[in-house]
Design a protein around this nucleic acid. Structure first.
Lengths: 159, 159
DNA sequence: AGGGCTGCGTTGAGCGTTCAACAAAAGCTA
DNA sequence: TAGCTTTTGTTGAACGCTCAACGCAGCCCT
């Protein structure tokens, strides 16, 4: 492995601004949802994914894959969402290992109630702060980052 | 309150890309630090802040303020860092309420050991993926977002 | 000096995430 | 078919964060 390529002053400044902005945004959105709709952002995303799926139903693994979430995380999350009555589980008839997560009417209603506040927050804190050029640049930047994250570093698994 | 200004298709696409990219980045950096240096990113930031402070010492509240962290969070974090031996607390002689957090030699060493891997990850996954124009655009965008987050919404506190 | 108010830091409970371990079903190979 | 590997999903412990509540010290005011 080679020598570390440290960040110069300008890069450091950009990095700090980026980190702080991202922390601030996620914090803001998370608090808004928690305060106004009693759900963390992650759960909001789960509800969104289910609401867009045919029959408002998805296999656990599909749901985990769609978001970058781990199976364990999803299992815990769905357990919680089931307690609250926003999601139910159904076992899969063709593959007895699998199970479905289904959005209930109450879950859909909770999502519908939460969406306006969330979208408004996103618009106010993100889109309204940027020029149209910056918005499209942010899109390109995000896609470039995503491309750089996909399946790299073909090191053999640690164990 | 007015009508919700929903996101159009293009905005939705940008928003999803942004969210996924940010989640992917933070996940990647957090795992890298946890795996290679046994510390979460948040703790890394605390160590950095202390290492840059005079005498490697900061008041708890200054430390909390520097990062956007709550007092409670910092208190828990420093307690943990103290257990590991990377930080110690000293009571403030002039203000007996206050306490100092001090980076130990072991803490400095841990930071020095962690930094190259972390910086390399940041460079590879962020800076190397973007053109110089995109990098500077990202800086401007981050600053605009930060400006939009500062002390807004002068609604009276909920209670 | 006495009586608030404010600010600093800590504490404990609750929650969400991670990690490692596991059970059960499916698939694969001989 | 028997034996292995892989896939799917769950579980429990450990950890970090949040929130509300608290103890304590400084401050201000009369």
């Amino acid at each position: 492995m080679g020598v570390t390529r440290w960040l110069d002053d300008s890069e450091q400044e950009i990095w700090r601004a980026f980190v702080t902005a991202v922390e601030g945004l996620t914090d803001h959105f998370d608090r808004q949802l928690q305060r106004d709709s009693a759900m963390p952002y992650t759960y909001y995303e789960i509800l969104v994914a289910l609401s867009e799926a045919p029959n408002r139903t998805l296999r656990m693994s599909e749901l985990a894959g769609a978001r970058g979430s781990s199976r364990s995380r999803l299992s815990h999350a769905v357990a919680r969402l089931e307690e609250v009555g926003w999601v139910t589980r159904r076992t899969c008839p063709t593959d007895k290992r699998g199970s479905y997560a289904v959005l209930t009417d109450a879950g859909f209603a909770a999502l519908a109630a939460a969406a306006p506040g969330h979208v408004t927050a996103v618009r106010e804190r993100l889109f309204d702060q940027l020029t149209p050029e910056q918005v499209s640049a942010l899109g390109e930047i995000s896609k470039a980052i995503l491309a750089g994250l996909g399946c790299r570093d073909p090191r053999p698994p640690a164990r």
